[in-house]
Amino acid sequence: MFGLLALAALVLVGCRQDMHNQAKFEPYEKSDFFLDGSSARVPPAFTVARDSVDPTSSIYTGEDDNGWMSAVPYVVDEAFLHRGQQRFDIYCSPCHDNTGAGNGMIVQRGFKQPPSYHEQRLRDMPIGYFYNVATNGYGLMSGYKAQVKLQDRWAIAAWVRVLQRSQNVPEGSLSAPDREQLRHDLQNAESSTASAHAAGAP
């Protein structure tokens, strides 16, 4: 048995890891070469990445000559809005919650509550404003340009508009069947509340 262990030890000592750990850097691998110990480098000053957008252009700043842009500089179709919803739910809903009311989990755990998208001041804001906040942050909120791509930030801004609309549809703008459905739902809600009260529920 001792002989076997000795043999195994010999064989294992023979195992080298040169091919496993080659003289190249994997992403974010530690480096002994650079002073900060990181193999990942930041772009040198006064350079831009090949696919980057001119940081003074409207599509990047969200502003044009008249102030905040009032339209999304992309084709807004269903797929674009769904993308916005998905990105919103990933990056924004932790604080703003899925409806935009501002009761997300991080707020419940102590982060300052953001304003609801459904207050009049924000309903009146041009869409470029929401794009800008998503990009550069506002108050305690950090900017998300490092985490969310340019087009996705516009998609998120578009989704914020959808959320605002979803909570504030004038009854007169509904189609007749939708209006009928709404009346029906409201009646149901009222009667179920009434019966719940009757049953002694708060």
Binding site: P27, Y28, I106, F111, L140, S142, A146, Q147
Partner: peptide
């Protein structure tokens, strides 16, 4: 991308500057 990405410290601080 090939790499899933490890968040920079800034991502932690989005919340942990106050929480």
């Amino acid at each position: 991308s090939a790499f899933a990405g490890i968040p920079p410290t800034a991502t932690c601080m989005n919340c942990h500057k106050t929480v």
